[in-house]
Amino acid sequence: MYQLTKDLFRIPMKAEEVLCSTVYESEALKEFTEEPVKSPKIEEVYGHLKFPKAPADRPYVYASFITTIDGKIAFQDARDSALLQTNNFLDKTGGNAPFFVFMLQRAAADAVICGAGTMREEPNMTVHLYDVDLEQARIDNGLPPVPLNIISTLDGTDLLFDHTIFKKDEVPKMINTSPVGWEVVREKCQNPIFLVGPYRTIEDVDFVKLDRLLEENKGKIPVVVTGEGAQTDSNILFRILRHMGIERLLIETPVYTHHLMMNGLMDELFLNYACIYVGGGAMSIGLHSKSCTSTDHPHTKMLSIVNAKASPDHWFCFREAVIHGVKGRE
């Protein structure tokens, strides 16, 4: 039987202070049947957050970011992304309404991928539910209180092994890295770990042996090694996660989000849109990565738009289905 965590940071959020209104809702949402977390508070504040069934060979993948009117996901002088909400000074909820919705997107996830870069910018963060009622809703719906925190690193050199995530026993953890990254993790990680892999192709994965390995090493951090050299393979990782029972996978790292968008592996985006401008060279999704071209790029379809009842003009959450493989106009 799951219990509430005792040693994780909280932000109390009263339902009447974070109430949301639905501005737009697509007919496509009527086809979504999976509602992973239900509670009176969620229904009062947001309504019903439903998803399609996960594919058989990978989780249903969605990303969630706080973004500005010009697509920035952090200030350049203070890179904690939550400041885009709290420093949206015209939002009368003080950033609490968008933060509750952001936490709701976490609450629906079985696992969350966070990048080493995000961990460096936010050394005290862990991917858990800051609102205790959302954590309780997970427990009431048969989910563990904290989603699996998956730390993604290509070569291991950017990881902070003394980060808060590694110190909190109540946070379940996994590391995904490359063969090169495994050597770094094995040398520097102070937590008990065990190797899963390495897997160069999906054919290398023996799922019977994988189950036995996971069972024999409970209490240790699995380090899932995929790909070759200093490159990982997301298809292999996703297949393993789905076998482990991960149905919904949330992405909170901008670099990895761009990778998935470029490779046809992203299903949805939740963009918590703060009506502020940042500009310049501040962080954006996919910054410093190869851009899509004018003839080959993902598209989206709007699924829903919500805002805060107390501050309807200064924050919106856009939920968008990602459409890959759209051909150019003939």
Rank of each mutant, 00 (worst) to 15 (best):
M1F: 09
Y2K: 01
Y2C: 00
T5F: 12
F9G: 06
I11T: 10
P12M: 00
A15Y: 09
Y24W: 08
E25K: 10
E34Q: 15
K38E: 12
Y46E: 04
K50L: 12
P59S: 02
T67H: 00
T67R: 00
T68E: 08
A78I: 13
R79G: 05
R79W: 02
S81R: 09
L83M: 11
F89I: 12
D91Y: 05
G94L: 07
A97C: 14
A97Q: 10
P98G: 00
V101K: 05
M103N: 15
A116K: 07
E121S: 14
L129S: 02
Y130R: 14
D131F: 02
V132L: 13
Q136A: 15
R138Y: 12
I139G: 03
G142C: 08
P147W: 08
P147Y: 09
L148Y: 03
L160F: 11
H163L: 03
I165N: 07
I165A: 14
V171C: 10
S178Y: 01
P179Y: 06
G181W: 02
R186E: 15
Q190I: 02
Q190L: 10
V196R: 09
P198G: 00
K209R: 14
E216W: 01
K218M: 14
P222R: 04
D233Q: 09
R239Y: 10
I246A: 04
E247P: 07
E252L: 02
T253S: 15
Y256V: 08
T257E: 06
G264E: 12
L265C: 05
M283N: 12
I285W: 01
L287A: 12
L287Q: 13
H288P: 00
C292M: 14
H297D: 06
H297F: 15
K301G: 01
N307V: 03
P312N: 09
D313V: 13
V322G: 01
